[in-house]
């Protein structure tokens, strides 16, 4: 606080620091990565992960957890590579319906007072089943506009970075600056007081889940734009990655304390962790392990940081 920063900004210090350290390490190991092309290669897979992380963050903001995101993004990828290309109208309708289902689930979880973990795990079966029905074997093709969007080369900065910044800003405006965002975070903080203040919890939860669905749809479309084809299992690991990304970015598990900019940074950090290992010539077997290790290190740093803060606050 002495630095004149808000607590929201303080929350971003550790995620930003860890990403910078990791990026510096990658540049040091491989100076050629420090180019337009190198950066794009390094970070373009982070774009769909960042979108999925924002989706997960919206669900975590209302104190729930979405274990179906990986299956859902895979489902969207399959729709994008088949219907959205061949019959754009039908494809759009399917995706809109899927977002509607997401919102509905948010409401059902609240009305019936169900554990979100179990309901979303059940939904992950449903999405996986629908994806298998559409694409029993890997295939399909990305619509041209999606492909163009993901491979376009803007001046100055590579697409991966431009996209990450745009995602961070849009998510920040929605979650931190709009009244809807305040309402959603309020539900996570103290549902009862929000309710007493006359707001509709059902609407807030439907909005949080619906928005999560929109971001997850964007993640699936972006993913197909990069991979050009789809597969029913293409994004299954996104479920755990997105949770890790939110936490890495300074989000908390309860209380509606989330940070959209942090979440994007968290997703970038997780992606960089993989490349860092391959530059170190460590077997890719350890890639997931490195992501786990980074998660632990960042959480340990945060603990130390919080303690120092507290000691400074009460001299």
């Amino acid at each position: 606080m002495k630095l004149g920063l808000t607590s929201d900004a303080m929350r971003l210090v550790i995620p930003a620091l860890s990403m910078t350290v990791l990026l510096a390490a990658v540049f040091w190991l491989q100076p050629r990565a420090m180019s337009y092309f190198g950066l794009n290669l390094l970070l373009n897979l982070a774009v769909p992960i960042a979108l999925a992380t924002i989706a997960q963050m919206l669900v975590m903001a209302v104190n729930d957890l979405d274990l179906s995101i990986g299956a859902f993004v895979s489902f969207v990828a399959c729709v994008t590579a088949t219907f959205l290309r061949d019959a754009p109208l039908v494809g759009t309708l399917i995706l809109a319906g899927a977002v509607g289902i997401y919102a509905l689930i948010g409401v059902v979880i609240y009305l019936r007072n169900l554990p979100s973990i179990v309901v979303t795990l059940g939904m992950s079966f449903v999405w996986a089943g629908l994806a298998v029905l559409m694409l029993p074997a890997p295939g399909g093709q990305a619509p041209d506009w999606v492909r163009w969007l993901m491979t376009v080369k803007p001046p100055l900065m590579p697409m991966a970075i431009v996209a990450s910044i745009v995602i961070a800003i849009v998510a920040h405006l929605i979650v931190m600056r709009s009244s809807l965002g305040v309402l959603i975070r309020g539900v996570g903080g103290n549902q009862r007081s929000v309710e007493r203040a006359g707001w509709s919890i059902i609407a807030a939860r439907a909005a949080a889940y619906g928005l999560a669905g929109v971001f997850a749809v964007a993640a699936g479309i972006a993913l197909v734009g990069l991979t050009t084809s789809a597969d029913a299992n293409i994004a299954l690991r996104y479920t755990l990655l997105s949770i890790a990304g939110v936490i890495l970015g300074g989000g908390e598990f309860t209380g509606g304390r989330v940070s959209p900019i942090g979440a994007v940074i968290g997703a970038l950090t997780l992606t960089l962790a993989g490349s860092f290992l391959s530059f170190l010539r460590i077997s890719p077997d350890w890639q997931i392990g490195a992501q786990g290790a980074i998660l632990i290190i960042v959480l340990a740093l945060r603990l130390v940081f919080n303690r120092v803060e507290k000691r400074r606050a009460q001299p």
Partner: peptide
């Protein structure tokens, strides 16, 4: 979750 990442890698 973090533990499982490491165990899975192992």
């Amino acid at each position: 979750l973090s533990m499982s990442f490491i165990v899975q890698s192992a």
